[in-house]
Structure formats: C-alpha cells, structure tokens
Design a protein around this nucleic acid. Structure first.
Lengths: 109, 109
DNA sequence: CGGGCACATAACCTGTTGGCTATATTACGG
DNA sequence: CCGTAATATAGCCAACAGGTTATGTGCCCG
C-alpha cells in the first residue's frame, strides 16, 4: 500500500485534494472540475481512499468525498525535524551538536 | 524535472535526507549508511540535487552533500491550507463558508 | 420492474523509474 | 606520471503507474 508521499506525488491527486479542500464533492463534480476521464478520477480516488487521505459517504447513488486529515498531519510531522532549516534561528547548541555529531572519521581536512 | 513531491516519494531519498539532517556527508558515508550500491546512491543524489533538495560542496575528490531548505519549505507551504483540518478548532465562520461555498447544485438530498 | 445514472472495476498499453554492473572521470599521493 | 580512491554516467532490464475504453453493479424513477 502506497505511502502518503507516493499518493501526493501524483499531480491529479493533489488537484483532487485541492478541490475537496473547500468541502465535500461527488465524483461527478470532481470529473467536471478537472479534465480527466471518470474512471481516471475513480482510480485516483481509490488510491486516496486506501491511503486514508479521503473519506467517502455513500448517499443514494452518489458518493461524496472529503479530505481526511491524519495522513497530512503525518507529513507535517515528518517535516518537523527539517523545519529548523528554514525557520529563523535555532539554538546555537543544537546547531553545534549537528555539526559535530558524526565527527571522528576522515573529517579533519 | 521532478516535483519535490516526486522526489520525496522515494524511500531511499528520504533516507538520504534523514542521514543529511544531522550534517554534511560524503557519498561514501551515505553508501556505508544505507544498503544500496554506490551508483544507486549517486543516482538518487542527482535527483535530489536537481530538485534543489541538497547542495554539493566539492572538496578534493570528495563531494559533501547537505540539505537545502527551500523545497521543504514549499511543501510546508503547500500543507498550510490543509492544516486547519487537524489543528484544533477553526473559526466557525470559516467552516461555514467552506461548507456552503459550492452549494446550489444537487446538494439538498 | 425495466431503463438509465452515477460510480467502480477490468483489461490493456506505454512511459517512467529504480536497481544493477560496467565504465568514464578527476584528483591525489608517491 | 601512474595507480588508485571517490564519484558520476551509461546501458540494460523488470516492475509499476496512469491513461483509455469497455463493462459491471446498485439504486432511483416512471
């Protein structure tokens, strides 16, 4: 089963998520909103669903899809340790530890 | 040229980033740190480099790689509009707007 | 209760990707 | 200068992903 990153790597799937960001949508609405065949959309929705990125609500013959937060929150969490690379300053000590954590090899020169 | 998401979709590339998170590393050090052939590592490094996710510093015959922040910051930015899905509460008005922003179709039933 | 919607699944084809082995390249050290 | 160390590139192959068309399935409506 694909990782969240795999799933998000697909532009059309990010497009779908963008469409869902403003609220639930049926498959047909998604198809209308993005030049791609209906089976194509369904295929992506399946991937999104299996990765837990969207939720379905069956309503008569329609299926309403909406964004699920958890996997996105995981990405956010994955990003956390890197965040110090671009957010303002970090503790001088912390930086020092990083620089020297692996020293001891052929590191002198 | 691959998007940042494409690049991050590869587990080995995330592994490389993880190794670089604690400071610069040479290719050889990366190879030692992750069961994968040297050409394999170099190939991934090339992708990471072209996507701007890492930087190289040539030093004698060694190449020292390190993390570059920008693309990661972009991911962070992409995540922003979704963040409200899992961070605490959001403004009632904002939620209301989302729920009703597209209403007017076959939305009643 | 039969026809048509809305959606999912199947089957097929093609392009891309990642791994490997072999080889080119460049810089030192002696 | 030569040999070797460190890394990049080339070439090859198997696996996979995404698009398309055709078809299955369930549910409302007249």
């Amino acid at each position: 089963m694909a990782t969240t990153f795999d799933v998000l790597a697909e532009p059309r799937r990010r497009e779908i998520l963008d469409l869902l960001r403003t609220g639930e949508r049926s498959v047909g609405e998604l198809v209308d909103g993005m030049s791609l065949s209906q089976p194509g959309v369904s295929k992506h929705l399946r991937v999104l669903r299996e990765a837990g990125l969207v939720d379905v609500r069956v309503e008569a013959q329609r299926r309403r899809y909406r964004v699920r937060a958890e996997p996105l929150a995981e990405i956010d969490a994955w990003l956390a340790p890197y965040r110090r690379f671009w957010t303002g300053r970090l503790d001088a000590l912390e930086r020092h530890l990083d620089e020297t954590s692996r020293t001891g090899t052929t590191d002198k020169e």
